[in-house]
Design a binder for these strands. Structure first.
Lengths: 274, 274
DNA sequence: GCTGATATACCACTTTTCTGGAATATCCGT
DNA sequence: ACGGATATTCCAGAAAAGTGGTATATCAGC
């Protein structure tokens, strides 16, 4: 819920007060476990969509949107997106590629945890177009919402939103459940869409030395520099890297960086200065 | 929990079975609300640390680590880190800058949701040194753990881990609570450290044409091939890419791939075949 | 003790990429 | 209409990376 630091007062402080004990006995927990089972047994986008439609209703929302923050019309089927917004709103949204500039999405890029839409104006600057868009949405029945950011390094940014019709209050008791469910649902979508899969079996792997060389190369070092760092000959470094390329079936070391990032052998943190 | 697609069986499917109903009446929910209050009222790193020490114990863990995935000795006070690991382990860890290559961290860069350490070998390739490090940790009492990824675009990647001593099983009932708490705790740390306010310098950006060239180069095309694809001269392609390098202040195109991945200009999906 | 994987090292040759300097045309917002 | 950012093109030498073949020592596992 927090994002900007700067001594802004936390809104989450009253989560404690939000959780109505009356709902507890079995209620929330059995709901949660049922939802998780539903989501994790989804084998297709259709399965996941049905699951979310149902979960959305049971949580006390009307709409949901699980989406990558990209221009959907351009990105095509590789981009993740499921939602049950009114078609008219979705068409308008897509035709203007609002996915990339939507203030809700922008807000979700500044925090790790879920947030209510109502706090957005206090956290990020809104342009005139933003306000226009939000009020257009309200006119079409899109009221307040709760959005769970879903960012995985190196992948398109995404989020899961649960939304109510204009005027209807958010089910605040359910927000913690929504927060967990949103994360699991996005992860299920990544699984179904096969976001990071390289589709090679067995998956390649590097030796320690190969990984060291790739690591330093990815930090911008030349082979000679790497040879000084690792105290071996320059040729050896070249060898390790080209062998690494061989394992991943690529013919340029730059591609090796990308493949090792994709399969988790290395991460952006490894490469970036800091 | 998922990462690689490939029809790998989900481990999360049994979250439902994990949540023991006996614990429900008031137990988990009051715990959660108390923890959230504790975390959100923290005004300093010390406050947050105390809160996490307490939460850690009540959840049934022994150690916690809330950290940015950076070389701590180099990054200094700007990097977020709180933990209660044994000093000996922490010193060893820091002195080797394991924070940047730790397999737990690597795994946390490939998923949105929390995961048990025990599944890591099935998800990302481990080198011999990785295994060595894990077993060294076990020797020093670091057993199994549960890690919640915490990634915010444009910032150092991070995570929150709850860990048990070697041989002691994870409190599986509490993992959903740990997942929520981990997210809130990381967000509280961002607030306390004032992370967002530090990022003042405007990030570089590429022109459309530059981005196109980088995109195709990252798919393994040579400049001549790209020139055929975009129907311009080979020189022009080279130019666009080197100009792109200039904007990011790097001297190799491979680094440009990494920077554009890091800031979200391009994504792994853009580069990977399929 | 054998086998396979790993780490190391060397050479010769080709291709690609980087570096530096310059110039023209287009598009956009003021 | 004008200034600034963008897109495009050209040249040439230097540096780096890719290709293909070979060889030795170590270590772990069978």
């Amino acid at each position: 819920m927090e994002c900007q630091g700067k001594g802004v007062r936390r809104d989450n402080g009253d989560l404690g007060r939000r959780l109505r004990p009356e709902l507890c006995p079995m209620g929330i927990l059995s709901l949660l476990s049922r939802f998780v089972t539903l989501i994790n047994s989804a084998q297709s986008a259709g399965d996941l969509e049905s699951a979310l439609v149902q979960i959305c209703i049971e949580l006390g929302f009307q709409y949901f949107a699980l989406t990558h923050h990209v221009d959907i019309l351009r990105a095509g089927a590789r981009a993740i997106r499921l939602h049950n917004y009114p078609n008219r709103w979705a068409d308008y949204y897509d035709s203007r590629a609002l996915g990339v500039s939507d203030p809700v999405h922008r807000m979700s890029h500044t925090t790790r945890v879920g947030f209510q839409w109502s706090i957005i104006p206090d956290r990020i600057p809104l342009t005139r177009n933003d306000k226009l868009m939000l009020s257009l949405g309200r006119d079409q029945g899109i009221g307040d919402g709760f959005t769970i950011p879903a960012n995985v390094p190196g992948e398109a940014r995404g989020s899961v939103s649960f939304v109510n019709a204009t005027g209807r209050p958010l089910p605040v008791d359910m927000l913690p459940v929504a927060e967990l469910i949103g994360g699991f649902a996005f992860e299920a979508a990544r699984r179904i869409w096969g976001v990071r899969s390289l589709n090679v079996n067995p998956p390649p792997s590097l030796t320690d030395r190969q990984r060291d060389c790739v690591l330093w190369a990815g930090r911008g070092k030349g082979d000679w520099e790497i040879s000084r760092i690792l105290d071996v000959s320059e040729e050896t470094v070249t060898r390790h890297i080209t062998h690494g390329c061989g394992r991943y079936g690529v013919n340029k070391r730059a591609l090796l960086f990308i493949r090792t990032l994709a399969d988790g052998t290395l991460t952006l943190e490894d490469f970036l200065p800091g």
